[in-house]
Amino acid sequence: MHKTALVPYAHLPRAHHDRHVLTSTVDVFGTAHWLLTDRAPKPGRDVLPFDALVVSVRPGGNVELTELSAVRSRWPRLDRLPDGGFVVAASRTRRREEEDDDQVQVFDALGRETSSFSVGDAVEHLLVDEAGHIWVGHFDENPAGIRRWSATGRLAWTSYDADIPGLYDCYALNVSGTTAWACPYTDFPLVEIRPDSPDSPDRPVRVWSNRIRGANAVAVHGERVVFYGGYGQEQDRLAHGELTERSVEPTDVGPLTLPDGLAPGRRRVVGRGSRIYVQAEPFTAWGVFDLST
């Protein structure tokens, strides 16, 4: 069993360590972002909306600060748009049975809200691609599965009739370029989604059967794939596989650790192409595993 250590990738500058990390992500271009507030939210006691600060650390270490005005989600998802703006979305709607709760806010590069709309309840993943499309993967309290939206709230693609087996919960979602990869519960197939592909306009989805269960992140490079996470004692598992015509064939497995060799414990994960980014408590640093190296 081969042990793999994450490589240090990006750190929140120490000047901001006194603030609370609401959420954090790594965007499609490799920039890490932290959404910060003065203190941790308290259910039922905090007044919404509130102002927040995004600290962005580009590859190479350059830091940008963006003040967001009137954020409406206590426990949000975050990503950056190609024009420098941001998307902030609540994972739950206030009225779970309805689609008219504008839980998604779009901010321009100056931190001003420009639009808002709903993508539905139970948001597990929210990732923006290079063209500015917003990919949303839902967990099992919303049967919508995987959907792609424009930055103005237009539904552009849905998995509803895509013939993806066992799509009840989008456990893993990876968005790179304008392609999405997913590994959904219950059958855990590897799914490639290319809605705008000129090579296969009538076949935007490819599916490979897969025996690796419970991963919450996936990365792909050529004919190689890796799955991170699993159930119980396999939560730190890094499982490698090779793509054949119809299936993923497992090749190697072992734990993925922090750069210092310790287990991550509570963590955030983001899949981008060949990379899996991992952030462990206190959520001030990202490490990366790159399948292409």
Results as ranks from 00 to 15, higher is better:
residue 5 A to H: 15
residue 238 L to W: 12
residue 258 L to E: 07
residue 199 D to Q: 07
residue 250 P to G: 11
residue 247 S to V: 03
residue 137 G to P: 04
residue 256 L to D: 05
residue 151 A to N: 10
residue 18 D to G: 09
residue 138 H to N: 10
residue 127 L to I: 09
residue 83 D to Q: 12
residue 153 G to D: 04
residue 243 L to Y: 00
residue 64 E to G: 05
residue 237 R to F: 10
residue 51 D to Y: 03
residue 232 G to T: 03
residue 44 G to T: 09
residue 150 S to K: 03
residue 84 G to D: 08
residue 29 F to D: 08
residue 160 Y to L: 14
residue 183 C to Q: 08
residue 22 L to E: 05
residue 9 Y to V: 08
residue 283 F to M: 08
residue 112 R to T: 14
residue 201 P to Q: 12
residue 111 G to D: 11
residue 38 D to T: 06
residue 285 A to I: 01
residue 101 D to A: 05
residue 242 E to I: 01
residue 141 E to F: 07
residue 257 T to H: 15
residue 53 L to V: 15
residue 14 R to F: 00
residue 81 L to V: 01
residue 239 A to G: 06
residue 135 W to C: 02
residue 256 L to M: 12
residue 66 T to A: 11
residue 273 G to E: 04
residue 131 A to Y: 00
residue 111 G to T: 11
residue 183 C to I: 06
residue 281 E to V: 15
residue 31 T to G: 09
residue 207 V to Q: 07
residue 112 R to Y: 05
residue 23 T to D: 10
residue 195 P to N: 02
residue 235 Q to N: 07
residue 175 V to D: 03
residue 256 L to I: 06
residue 148 R to C: 13
residue 88 V to G: 13
residue 81 L to R: 03
residue 193 I to V: 03
residue 183 C to S: 14
residue 221 H to P: 02
residue 171 Y to N: 09
residue 54 V to I: 15
residue 2 H to I: 11
residue 6 L to A: 15
residue 211 R to V: 14
residue 170 C to S: 11
residue 73 S to M: 03
residue 162 A to P: 07
residue 28 V to A: 14
residue 15 A to E: 12
residue 52 A to N: 09
residue 33 H to I: 01
residue 9 Y to W: 11
residue 133 H to V: 06
residue 275 R to I: 01
residue 49 P to Q: 11
residue 64 E to F: 06
residue 28 V to H: 10
residue 148 R to M: 13
residue 233 Q to S: 05
residue 72 R to F: 00
residue 57 V to S: 06
residue 198 P to S: 14
residue 33 H to D: 01
residue 139 F to K: 09
residue 177 G to N: 12
residue 72 R to N: 02
residue 66 T to V: 15
residue 116 S to N: 07
residue 205 V to N: 04
residue 107 F to I: 10
residue 138 H to E: 05
residue 230 G to K: 10
residue 100 D to A: 07
residue 32 A to M: 12
residue 129 D to R: 09
residue 251 T to L: 08
residue 243 L to E: 01
residue 54 V to K: 14
residue 123 V to R: 11
residue 277 Y to R: 09
residue 30 G to M: 12
residue 289 F to M: 06
residue 228 Y to K: 00
residue 66 T to W: 01
residue 271 G to I: 03
residue 67 E to M: 14
residue 42 K to I: 11
residue 292 S to H: 08
residue 280 A to E: 03
residue 185 Y to D: 11
residue 3 K to N: 12
residue 23 T to A: 10
residue 226 V to I: 13
residue 223 E to A: 07
residue 291 L to D: 13
residue 174 N to H: 04
residue 154 R to I: 04
residue 178 T to F: 01
residue 247 S to E: 15
residue 103 Q to N: 04
residue 191 V to S: 07
residue 157 W to I: 08
residue 113 E to N: 05
residue 1 M to E: 05
residue 34 W to L: 13
residue 209 S to A: 13
residue 93 T to Y: 03
residue 17 H to L: 15
residue 155 L to Q: 12
residue 256 L to C: 07
residue 71 V to H: 02
residue 160 Y to W: 10
residue 33 H to V: 00
residue 207 V to N: 08
residue 190 L to E: 00
residue 163 D to Y: 01
residue 199 D to T: 04
residue 71 V to D: 02
residue 79 D to R: 09
residue 88 V to T: 10
residue 163 D to S: 14
residue 211 R to C: 05
residue 287 G to T: 09
residue 276 I to D: 06
residue 89 A to L: 13
residue 4 T to R: 15
residue 286 W to E: 09
residue 48 L to R: 15
residue 90 A to T: 09
residue 14 R to H: 02
residue 288 V to I: 15
residue 151 A to K: 13
